[in-house]
Design a protein around this nucleic acid. Structure first.
Lengths: 149, 149
DNA sequence: ACCAATTTGTTAACAAAGCAATCAAATAGG
DNA sequence: CCTATTTGATTGCTTTGTTAACAAATTGGT
């Protein structure tokens, strides 16, 4: 009767660690790109979310961009001061503040869109376009299965 | 001939963002678990890496745990003070300092191993064991293709 | 054997992120 | 109504991330 000490799987087979490592691999070139504009990873995510969904309240941005509300508050203040977006309180619910991109914000995205796409295309060539698609599908499903129950 | 303004793919189809969102989904329950011991995500990764590879130098830990060396230095100092690990300078190369878990460090891991495995098992039941395997394989390949060239 | 270049880790300084507590506005229930 | 709870956002404190500078040890060429 041996004493059963439970064992953890290897870090390469740990989903959170594997996701993090994979992400670090992919982020390298993108970080370089953003560094040129003095834009952080987080700000870039906020820009993309706003560009995608249009004017929204902060809680929705935080959820979509994987940021906590307190962090987002500070990021938005900085970006508002830089003229990339504006905040206005919602008419029907004055707790909410609605965030919206300015023309300068949209221009900032446009300025990087081409290079960003090129980076992604290069990755798809090296890794395989089919695999990227398959991976994105699995990630979507994983996220969806997390909200269940 | 229309002016072609390049467009970014949706955030759900952006690999870095999808990886991050998926990771947030998975990390939720694990964060709760670690909070009970007052251990940060980063410290937990360090513990697991050390448990997996045994005594190693810090650069290797930083690489495996996705941490920058300065951050790791602070984290290791704190963990050493808490008695979870020890540092000693390497015999053959005295620049290196070799880090090793103590019994207390291993005990800390053992204390969480069962719950950690349960969390992962539950995820596999909901998401599908085969999909988890497939996903981990793809993530490994992605990471490998990043080091090419 | 020597000296320049590289590697390994630490420290400092500052921006940024996470977490807990707080505050303000809105909603729900008696 | 009016108080109790919920929701949305901000403020304070601690831990990380980031860049640069530094010390110490090693490597490699001459």
């Amino acid at each position: 009767m041996s004493e059963e000490r439970p064992t953890l799987r290897t870090t390469a087979r740990s989903l959170p660690i594997a996701l993090l490592r994979a992400r670090e691999t992919v982020m390298g070139p993108i970080r370089e790109m953003l560094a040129k504009s003095g834009i952080s990873e987080q700000k870039w995510r906020v820009l993309r979310v706003l560009d995608e969904v249009g004017p929204v309240e902060q809680t929705a941005i935080a959820d979509a961009a994987c940021l906590l509300l307190p962090s987002l508050t500070r990021i938005l203040s900085a970006m508002e001061k830089d003229g990339y977006l504006v905040r206005r309180t919602d008419d029907t619910d004055r707790r909410k503040s609605i965030v919206e991109l300015t023309e300068a914000g949209r221009a900032l995205i446009a300025r990087h869109a081409e290079e960003s796409n090129a980076i992604m295309t290069r990755l798809e060539r090296r890794f395989g376009e089919g695999k990227v698609t398959k991976l994105l599908d699995l990630l979507d499903e994983l996220r969806a299965s997390g909200s269940e129950r």
